[in-house]
Design a binder for these strands. Structure first.
Lengths: 212, 212
DNA sequence: TAGATTGTTAATCGATTAACAATC
DNA sequence: TAGATTGTTAATCGATTAACAATC
């Protein structure tokens, strides 16, 4: 009998873990070895109680009376987030944004390896960015049959996105990092979708500019 | 006596408004004129009750028995988000990502006008992207004295970010759209900060890949 | 031991969901 | 009128905050 490994830690907590990780790395680089929840509160603008509550989800992190050891905590949170588990990704669409990601985003640092790039446009196919040669979309299917694709990064034009997602799901892709403005609709519950939506973000900022 | 116009609508609600706006625009383009909360639920994966509750914050939107008129609702949500209120922004850092934003992001569509771009690198200063000529950082101060800067878009290298933010705040900038991985620390409560953090996002995806 | 600070239970607060009267 | 669907109050659920015993 298989038991569905149900994630009991709330999404809100998980969303904060990368912020902890990043801050701990910064403190480590500053040469700080130990931090109390109160100190972290000031650094992160999260209440000390909240921080302790978050860590508590994953067992004991600190030492009563002495705070948290930064090296140890960093390793542990990194492990929870799976930084040490490498996953493969491909990128679809090598326009400016795709190019920026290929060129500058530290995939390795986050436990990913960008293995291939695809584009439909003749002007970019065959060019090489950061060591990756852009393939034509026509090769996608063949590529998928011979390589494991853990994540597809979507930096495609709006209109093309839905079809590409459908195609990729058919080809077995189960996770998407979506930079397009498209709401990919209720895909199967076993498909993961992480959106980065610039327009949503700037509209939220506009609202606050007008109302705060 | 001035009354502090306290925003009584929760942040969670406001974060959903851009999604509503976007979906309504799509439905409009599909030629659909009316939608019930149940229909929107299917389109957006937000419960029908939740949708009605959200709209209820801003007065009556629909017509009992008939649902919501798409054109009217779209205009209203757009107005709440201030799409019709133009604000000016500048971008600091014209690397690949900055370039991508300049070139492709529909600022006007979201009620913004990108007025100037700054960079420190000799190789981009003086070049022109999408009609904007990149200025050297040394001109920032003079520029700020003569123009209104409502938002500064940050696509700067990590190390430079904090100093640039401090400088911009001195120059009177009160809102930032931050694409760097830097946690800009507890700035004054009258300074707005909207973060887009690629690393946080992809680590969250990684966690779900490993745990879902 | 005294002071500091965690880990964790309990209390509070806020957001989501359910229910239903109002009304098209 | 009957059916549909909103607007809104009440109930539930979950997340944040407070409190404090455990312990370094």
């Amino acid at each position: 009998m298989t038991i569905l490994k149900k994630n009991s830690v709330s999404d809100a907590v998980i969303r904060r873990l990368p912020r902890y990780l990043h801050k701990l790395t910064e403190l480590y680089e500053r040469g700080i070895e130990n931090a109390s929840s109160n100190f972290l509160m000031e650094e992160l603008n999260i209440s000390a109680t909240g921080i302790r509550q978050d860590f508590c989800n994953f067992g004991e992190f600190g030492q009563r009376g002495c705070g948290y050891n930064i090296t140890k905590m960093r390793a542990r949170i990194g492990h929870i987030l799976g930084i040490d588990e490498e996953r493969h990704l491909i990128i679809i669409g090598v326009d400016d944004l795709g190019h920026a990601l290929l060129q500058n985003f530290p995939f390795e640092q986050n436990g990913f390896r960008l293995e291939a790039a695809f584009d439909i446009s003749q002007s970019v196919v065959g060019t090489s960015v950061h060591g990756i040669t852009v393939k034509p979309m026509t090769e996608l299917e063949r590529y998928a049959q011979h390589h494991e694709i853990d994540v597809a990064v979507l930096t495609t034009p709006q209109v093309a996105t839905q079809d590409i997602v459908t195609k990729l799901i058919e080809l077995g892709v189960r996770a998407f990092w979506n930079f397009t403005n498209v709401e990919v609709p209720s895909v199967d519950s076993d498909v993961l979708l992480e959106n980065i939506n610039f327009a949503d973000s700037i509209l939220h900022l506009k609202y606050r500019i007008l109302n705060d």
